[in-house]
Design a protein around this nucleic acid. Structure first.
Lengths: 122, 122
DNA sequence: TTTTGTGTATTATGACCATAATACACCTAA
DNA sequence: TTAGGTGTATTATGGTCATAATACACAAAA
């Protein structure tokens, strides 16, 4: 994980949440693995054209959620184990599917119709 | 549309957006049709345990988006025609499917895997 | 040793959302 | 005619998010 250039920010979700989600996605895709070094707060802020304080807020969250470790002023690294990986997988995949199904049922879409729509739009 | 009791508010989206989305959903499901009278701002606020100003903000939005009309102090009514209905249908259905597919591809889910997951969770 | 970059923290400002408390003109039903 | 409900508007307060501008202690590199 040397760069955050692939992260395109939207204006719906808080930026610090989007940063944490991006890192979780990189872990899920195994593009970020145990021990990987992350860029400094200031460097990420520059890459995203965002305030360093916002990036710091993202790091605070990621440390609390357990998949990023920081020691002193040596920078931060990715930390993953089996449990954490499963949690991230469940969050990114399970929540996506569950929320989609809830919304689809909410507007009376049938299972058949949903599969049709996805097939059509894929 | 006499009641907003079925609307369960979440804390992720702005309340006034959720109110407008609820009305759009009622229109899509044809439970709200042309000419239907809506409860007063104050009554909706009471039903949702929300501030009347927040409800007023929702009405302002719904009028701007065209599916609610207000005249004087006679209350507000649903306004739908073919064009508006199609817009709402596209917004609620199309956007849901498109955003889901984008997110699914984002985490490298295959079409096959997605259908499996939906089948499993439905 | 001095400079540079690091993580961390604080204070102030501003936008957006929601609440609270009013206020006012209008219509309608008692 | 009056009392009550309507839509609408305004002002103030507070929380969250993001920015801006600093500040400080620490470690590594020049």
């Amino acid at each position: 994980m040397q760069s955050f250039n692939e992260l395109k920010l939207n204006s719906k979700e808080p930026v610090y949440i989007q940063i944490a989600s991006f890192v979780k996605k990189e872990i899920l895709l195994k593009r970020a693995i145990l021990g990987d070094k992350l860029p400094s707060r200031r460097e990420i802020a520059a890459q995203l054209s965002v305030n360093p304080n916002t990036v710091q807020k993202a790091f605070k969250l990621m440390e609390e959620e357990g998949y990023v470790h920081t020691s002193g002023n040596q920078g931060s690294i990715i930390y993953v184990n089996e449990v954490i990986y499963r949690l991230i997988e469940e969050e990114l995949t399970g929540e996506l599917v569950r929320e989609f199904i809830t919304s689809a049922k909410d507007i009376n879409l049938s299972f058949k119709k949903v599969v049709e729509l996805i097939t059509e739009h894929w």
